[in-house]
Simulated scan of single mutants.
Amino acid sequence: MTPSSWDILRRVRGGAGDARRRAQLRAAGVTDGQLRASAYRSPHRGVHAAADEPPTVERRIRDVVPLLPPGGVIGGWAAAYLHGARDLDGLVGGRELPVLVCLPPHRRLRPRPGVRLLRSDLGPRTSPRSAASR
């Protein structure tokens, strides 16, 4: 029996609905023919996910995660949404805002539709409590 796209995505790092890099899926035994089939969608070049997952705000954000290089983080409205600010859904006047990807100055990522890049020194991690006590 051929495993479903969901079964394969579960075996590869992350949850069932998470997008994966093509290389991860190929290492898990997925063929190029399977990736071109209707069971998968490709939200970004080199990234694939199960096609039968309904479109949601969270899915749009999760589709960008495999693109993150070391030190890269999701920012802006998408980060706020993931932290519980559900009113920040990335829509303005019915138009989808790009997902902000924050990169350290030395990291590079190819520009892609639906993704906005920001290179900045992200600095050390601080909690809101430690920043407020300064």
Rank of each mutant, 00 (worst) to 15 (best):
D7E: 15
D7V: 13
D7N: 11
I8Y: 08
I8L: 14
L9F: 08
L9H: 13
L9S: 15
R11P: 00
R11W: 00
R11A: 15
V12E: 03
V12T: 15
V12F: 04
V12W: 05
G14Q: 07
A16V: 15
G17W: 07
G17R: 11
G17T: 13
D18H: 14
D18R: 10
A19L: 07
A19I: 11
R20G: 07
R21I: 07
R22M: 12
R22N: 06
R22D: 14
A23R: 13
L25T: 14
R26L: 15
A27S: 13
A27M: 05
A28D: 06
A28N: 06
G29Y: 01
V30C: 09
T31W: 02
D32C: 03
G33D: 15
G33L: 08
G33S: 13
Q34V: 07
R36I: 00
A37N: 13
A37F: 00
S38A: 14
S38M: 08
S38N: 10
A39L: 09
A39G: 13
A39M: 09
Y40C: 10
R41N: 06
R41C: 11
S42V: 09
S42R: 15
S42F: 00
P43M: 06
P43Y: 08
P43L: 06
H44C: 05
H44T: 11
R45C: 07
G46I: 13
V47S: 00
V47W: 04
A49N: 06
A49Q: 13
A50K: 04
A50G: 15
A50Q: 12
A51I: 11
E53G: 08
P54Q: 05
P55D: 14
P55G: 10
P55F: 06
V57I: 14
E58D: 12
E58K: 10
E58T: 12
R60D: 09
R60K: 05
R60C: 09
I61S: 01
I61K: 04
I61V: 10
D63G: 10
D63Q: 11
D63Y: 04
D63P: 03
V64K: 04
V64R: 02
V65S: 03
P66T: 13
L67N: 07
L67H: 09
L68H: 10
L68S: 09
P69R: 04
P69D: 05
G71W: 03
G71L: 05
G71T: 12
G71F: 05
G71C: 10
G72W: 02
G72M: 02
V73E: 03
V73Y: 03
V73A: 03
V73L: 03
I74Y: 01
I74S: 02
G75E: 00
G75C: 01
G76Y: 00
G76P: 02
W77I: 02
A78H: 03
A79H: 03
A79D: 03
A79S: 02
A79K: 02
A80C: 06
A80R: 01
